[in-house]
Design a protein around this nucleic acid. Structure first.
Length: 373
DNA sequence: AAAATTCACAACCGCTCGAAG
DNA sequence: CCTTCGAGCGGTTGTGAATTT
């Protein structure tokens, strides 16, 4: 079998990474930042191909990874996003702060998929057209009531569609246990044809890692390219008005201004209001490494939450302008957005969430897993 | 207790895309 | 244009731990 070109030039090690290799890679990136991956192995003194280094960093060593089990909320979001995006794991992962495409993909294949397959719903993204929309049964509502909200069905059909009213997300996931996750999955699987309609969650908006925020840091994603992300989606569905609507919604939620890198350029045109400590640089996290010339910047509170607050579900002034509150109640807002959907009498949106604990959204900043004692 | 099986997830592979020359 | 190269993505495989028989 052929190897990638960068792997052919020299004898490279493959397989699991050792702690020593991890340390080398961390030290190198801490000192030099992200650059040309093909040069990293040589410069870092690793017998690996650049591709392997990149993968190791992105999927495992990055300091902003959350790790740990997926919460039911995250699982629900993955399901919803998968309905829209299909197996575009990288796109899905972008909406799950601290999660990688690989992680999401693995989670889908190992946990979610097997729950859905028995019900024949494993491929929701390409689920065929709905049955006759005139079918009437309790708990149906029209998505057309809110043109900003779409479902997969709208992606596939350009006319009015009806879907079953889902139980409130808050109702289902209040306690965050997987039993309820199962109930949720079973509910959706049993309610032909599709799970609840899709609304981009406030989780989508987490262009900052919530854990950093909960710790009092403000994170500006390093390489979040909003324009690029949605350009790709628009290209893919260029003639699909429904998807255009979706991106419009997400555009509201993810302010392009936030695409300003965490480590901004030298221009002053992205100056923002200082808001407490900035997320520590990698070299500040990695013990014993010296910071170098990476300029940091902070992010204004309005930049982070402004787009969310502008949603109609938060009447003027009702959006809590407090980072900790925002993070602690993401699912509350998710549910609030869900409640925007015209709902039947059987659907309640009034239940409330317990604030998510730091541990629920906590990441494991240590270098993990197999090599842990 | 040992073997077999299942499971989660880390890592690899092949491919596409875009930029640069 | 064409070629080359690097980055990134999704599918697949490999590995080790956990569980079951």
């Amino acid at each position: 079998m052929g190897h990638h070109s960068c792997c052919n030039k020299q004898k490279v090690k493959r397989g699991l990474w050792s702690p020593e290799e991890d340390e080398k890679l961390i030290n190198y990136i801490s000192t030099n930042g992200l650059g040309c991956w093909s040069a990293v192995p040589r410069l870092a003194g690793l017998q690996r191909c650049g591709k392997s280094c990149r993968l190791r960093w992105i999927n495992y060593l990055r300091p902003d990874l959350k790790r740990g089990s997926f919460s039911p909320q995250e699982a629900a979001l993955i399901i919803e996003l998968h309905r829209i995006l299909g197996n575009r794991w990288a796109q899905i992962a972008k909406h799950l702060p601290g999660r990688t495409d690989n992680e999401v993909k693995n989670f889908w294949n190992s946990s979610i998929k097997k729950k859905l397959i028995p019900h024949g719903l494993s491929d929701l993204a390409t689920f065929p057209n709905l049955p006759n929309p005139s079918a009437s049964y309790e708990g149906l509502y029209s998505l057309n009531a809110n043109p900003n909200l779409i479902s997969t069905t709208q992606v596939q059909q350009d006319h009015q569609v009806y879907i079953p009213t889902p139980p409130s997300m808050a109702q289902v996931f209040n306690q965050g246990d997987m039993i309820k996750m199962d109930q949720y999955l079973n509910y959706n699987a049993n309610l032909f044809p599709v799970p609840p309609s899709v609304v981009p969650s406030p989780l989508d908006l987490s262009c900052y890692d919530p854990t950093w925020s909960s710790l009092g840091y403000h994170y500006r994603p390093q390489q979040f390219d909003h324009q690029h992300v949605f350009k790709q989606e628009e290209d893919m569905f260029i003639n699909n008005e429904a998807v255009a609507n979706y991106t419009t919604v997400v555009d509201k939620l993810v302010d392009p201004k936030m695409a300003t890198p965490l480590y901004g350029d030298d221009d002053d045109d992205d100056a923002v209001l200082p808001m407490g400590p900035v997320m520590p640089k990698l070299c500040e996290i990695t013990k014993g490494n010296e910071c170098n010339n990476i300029p940091s910047s902070s992010v204004s509170q309005d930049q982070v939450i402004g787009p969310i607050a502008s949603l109609s579900c938060f009447p003027s002034g009702s959006y809590p302008h407090d980072h900790h509150h925002v993070v602690a109640n993401q699912m509350e807002y998710f549910d609030a957005i869900m409640s925007l959907l015209p709902s039947s009498s059987s659907s309640s949106s009034s239940s409330s969430f317990s604030p998510l604990s730091c541990s629920q959204f906590g990441m494991n900043p240590t270098f993990p897993s197999r090599w842990d004692p």
